[in-house]
Design a protein around this nucleic acid. Sequence first.
DNA 1: CAAACATATGAATATGTATTCAAGTATATG
DNA 2: CATATACTTGAATACATATTCATATGTTTG
Lengths: 106, 106
Amino acid sequence: MSKTNLIPEEDVPQLADLFSLMGDTSRLRIILCCLHEPISVSDIAENTALSQSLVSHHLRLLKAARMVRAERRGKQVFYVAADHHVQCVIQDMVAHISESANGEDG
Amino acid sequence: MSKTNLIPEEDVPQLADLFSLMGDTSRLRIILCCLHEPISVSDIAENTALSQSLVSHHLRLLKAARMVRAERRGKQVFYVAADHHVQCVIQDMVAHISESANGEDG
DNA sequence: CAAACATATGAATATGTATTCAAGTATATG
DNA sequence: CATATACTTGAATACATATTCATATGTTTG
């Protein structure tokens, strides 16, 4: 009965919420846009080819989950990833994709 | 026009799919069950308090996405996480939660 | 204050998907 | 081959949520 699982049960819902937020292509693209440096809503919309309204809706969710931070500069609002763990999560998952792409044998 | 984003656009849908799979509490619990060592479907069902049918449905998705591997042992089928990157992803996200919990100032 | 720009929000809709239930497949055993 | 166990699968349903459109809020400037 080894309890190798280090994740407390109580954290599971919040964890799932965060993954769920990253599990939408539009939102993931938005996250990628503001992963390394602050970027305005309109620039995100342009880069992702999503409507400004939709980007704003998604940013609200990401901000509520503390995945991004907002900072107003004049008329614009700039968003940036809250911390580097978000980058790590994404890079780990990319590594997983590479590995599963290589290691397939069935 | 800095392209600090290292993730190729073509990988985004697959990335999102994987995160989406982890973004469901039932499925995340199932993943946690088989994160470190193989475990049978019925044991997963018992540990998670989910129906065997539901566990099986979820495992099918996880297997199709290569997040877990299946191995039959007699009448039972054991599932285990496909590689250690899945563990890393989860641990990074837990770190993010801790950090955002500490760093809040608003 | 009015006008222009940037962003946010609410309601409506369309689509996806988690869950359940019933039935099917696979494996061991007598 | 019949039975029991373990798992899988399909269809139905209930629920969530991504997207759009219209409108509102906030900000700078004249």
